[in-house]
Each structure stands twice: as structure tokens, then as C-alpha cells.
Design a protein around this nucleic acid. Structure first.
Lengths: 138, 138
DNA sequence: TCTTGTCATGATAACGATTCTCAATTCCAG
DNA sequence: CTGGAATTGAGAATCGTTATCATGACAAGA
């Protein structure tokens, strides 16, 4: 999958590239380039932050990673490999993230796009609110 | 509306503040801080960019402005005053923006939030795709 | 296995959007 | 009018991200 993508574009494999890919796939959270870099540095010291950025972008463009924002300023990445499409519910206080999927919403987006003569490429839906533990007890 | 917000927080009025507010409300597009600053400079030369940022943030926090992203790197602002809530359909090539509202989607978001015990505060939904004029004729 | 052209990398500079700092100005309640 | 507080402009500082560039790693052919 990554291999064929690389081959098609005359891109090469490399130890670091592999290390970054597998570290990323091992992650279970929506990760920042810096966070991934920090984790990576334990096993593979010497990998530069720029390289992490470069490879995350690459993973994103071959469909293995997806960039989301989740409200912070730094971009976050999640894996799109064996991970169905979904949207996010984010706690605006503690940052907790819940993934959800609503097929009716998906369907309606399709229909909105075509109603306005757009060819749908992607969408981002983030719901922000307070989770149960952060809500003031009142 | 702005006045009462200012009063509550011991904030003051000022000529520049008013100028920024009215210039912003006169805008019909989703505007960037820099763009607003440029427009503003024609009538009120000498207003600093930082001041535009400060006041846009203020307008946002009192509910007169809403920050959206629309895919670019710079934050964009639209007015939320006499402007019903809506979401955006953005052409990923020419940047054209269509506003839409789907009450069923809105309703479902509510229900998703409460199903996960979240108190809904806001949401962002952006659909990206190619508009009719940008779609290659095939 | 060497060779060579290409791609990947690390370090760091550059960048762009936004925020901060701080001295000077403006506001407004008394 | 005045004093204390909020606002402002200019530019420095910040932060995430990307570009630059010299160097190292890779893949494929001789």
C-alpha cells in the first residue's frame, strides 16, 4: 500500500521512513508531529522533526493518515488504515475525543454537495462541547 | 449588544473599536484579519494590525463574529449578527464558498452529543469539493 | 560489488499567522 | 479636570510548519 505508492512516484524506502510509519500506526491517539517525534526518539534517536513532518505529510497523501484539527493550533494525525471514516466530538475543556459516525449525516452531505453542483471530496465535522466529567455539577 | 458586553467586563469604547466593528459588519465576505485591516486602512489610516486581531477576537467572544477556517491557514471571520447559523461548502480549487443549513444534520448533532453525555457548545462542518466551474469537463 | 544519479535526511534558517510587550494615548467615573 | 484603568501602535517574540542545503542512504545497472 505504502510500497506501491512509493514505487509509483519513484520514492524510496528508508529505515527512518519505516520507523516513522510503524510508530505512527502503533499510536492509538490523534497525534501531533512533535508528539510522534518525541515517542520516536526513544527507539530511534536522531530522527529530525522535519523528517517527521515530511513523512506524515506523505502518509497523508497516500491515504494512510488523515489530518484533523480538533481545535488546537497544531495539526493532528490519525490513521486512516483499517479505520473507518468518522467524525469527532471534542471536549472543549479536557480535550477528550469521541469518534462517531452517523450515516444519515453522511448521506445528507452528499446530497447537499450535489444540490449545489459540487463534487464532494472530503468533509470535516467537529462537535465541541463539555463532556460529562467537565460539566459543572450545578 | 456589544455595549452591554463591554459594560459587563469594564471594557471601554473607542473610536477604533467602533471603526473596526462597523467595517467588519459592512463586509460581505468571510474575512481575514489582514484583509479587514487593509480595508480599514483606507478610511482610518494608522490602525494597527494587532488591534484588528484584538478586536476581532473580542467580537468573537461576545458573539458578534464567528471564526471559521475554510481550509486556508489564516483564520477567517464572518458576522454572526442577523446571520443565522450555517455551515460551509468550499471549492478546493477556486475557494468559492456556499453557505447552507440542514436542520436534520443539526438535529442529529444534538442527539449525538447527548448520547455521549456532552453538552453541545458549537460545531464546525465544512464540506470540501470541486464546484461546477472547477470540475474538469472530462 | 562498484558507480552513479536520485531521493531522504538533519540542522537550522525562514516563514506566516498570531500574540505579547511596553510606552504612549485615550477613555470615563468621580 | 483628573487619576487610574483600558486601549493602542510598533515591533519583538512565539509557535507550528516549511524551505534550504550540504551530506548520507538507496536502487539499479555495469
Amino acid at each position: 500500500m505504502l510500497a506501491s505508492f512509493l514505487a509509483e512516484r519513484k520514492l524510496k524506502k528508508s529505515k527512518r521512513r519505516d520507523a516513522i510509519l510503524s510508530a505512527f500506526l502503533a499510536m492509538e491517539t490523534h497525534v501531533t508531529a512533535e508528539e510522534l517525534h518525541r515517542v520516536l526518539s526513544a527507539e530511534h534517536p536522531g530522527i529530525g522533526l522535519a523528517t517527521v513532518y515530511r513523512n506524515l505529510k506523505l502518509l497523508a497523501s497516500c491515504g494512510l493518515a488523515k489530518q484533523v484539527s480538533l481545535g488546537g493550533k497544531a495539526a493532528r494525525f490519525e490513521h486512516a488504515f483499517r479505520h473507518r471514516h468518522h467524525d469527532h466530538l471534542v471536549c472543549s475543556r479536557c480535550g477528550k475525543v469521541v469518534e462517531f459516525l452517523d450515516s444519515e449525516i453522511e448521506r445528507r452531505q452528499e446530497s447537499i454537495a450535489s444540490r449545489h453542483d459540487f463534487t464532494l471530496e472530503s468533509h470535516t465535522l467537529e462537535i465541541h462541547g463539555l463532556c460529562g466529567s467537565c460539566r459543572p455539577p450545578r
